[in-house]
């Protein structure tokens, strides 16, 4: 039986009727139309569906949408400021950390949470933070470089 659930996503409240078995990843994509969140493996292995729940990176395929009620959810759609890309997104583009793009939303959100906690991480800390997000194209080197570059720019601007 469907239940009425209010999800707070990127600062907006969305009221929607959901089956309890609906995962957060499914709800974001199919009910709210926020298709930036990708669904890869559905079993927590790949990290493509990463969103931030109260700022904490989480695999949205392993969270029931109904369990996300009352929490602040951030998806990749909430990262840019209007048409202005976030420094992290800019760095990903410029450094060439994106090929097919499927892992990128999860990578960016995980990196965003890392930089919030640690504004100047070492390569080892970046790799550890991103270790749950798999990329099958770029081989990680460029992704680590992009996060390092973004950290540098963000430190400069503040």
């Amino acid at each position: 039986m469907k239940k009425i659930v209010t999800l707070n996503v990127n600062g907006l409240d969305y009221e929607t009727a959901l089956e309890p078995r609906r995962t957060l990843a499914e709800a974001l994509r199919y009910d709210l139309g926020l298709t930036g969140t990708k669904i890869g493996c559905k079993i927590g292995d790949c990290g493509a569906c990463t969103v931030l729940i109260d700022g904490v990176p989480s695999s949205s395929c392993l969270v029931l949408a109904i369990e996300a009620e009352g929490h602040e959810i951030m998806t990749i759609e909430g990262v840019a400021d209007g048409n202005k890309l976030h420094p992290l997104q800019e760095a990903f583009v410029e450094v060439g950390a994106i090929q097919c793009g499927f892992c990128t939303p999860g990578m960016v959100l995980t990196a965003l949470a890392l930089l919030k906690d640690n504004s100047d991480p070492t390569d080892a800390q970046i790799r550890r933070a991103l270790s749950g997000n798999l990329c099958r194209c770029t081989g990680y080197q460029k992704i680590v470089e992009a996060v390092r570059e973004a950290a540098k720019r963000m430190l400069r601007t503040c």
Partner: peptide, 9 residues
């Protein structure tokens, strides 16, 4: 255990 994503939940 697992990955940061798994440990967070």
């Amino acid at each position: 255990l697992g990955s940061p994503l798994v440990r967070n939940r």
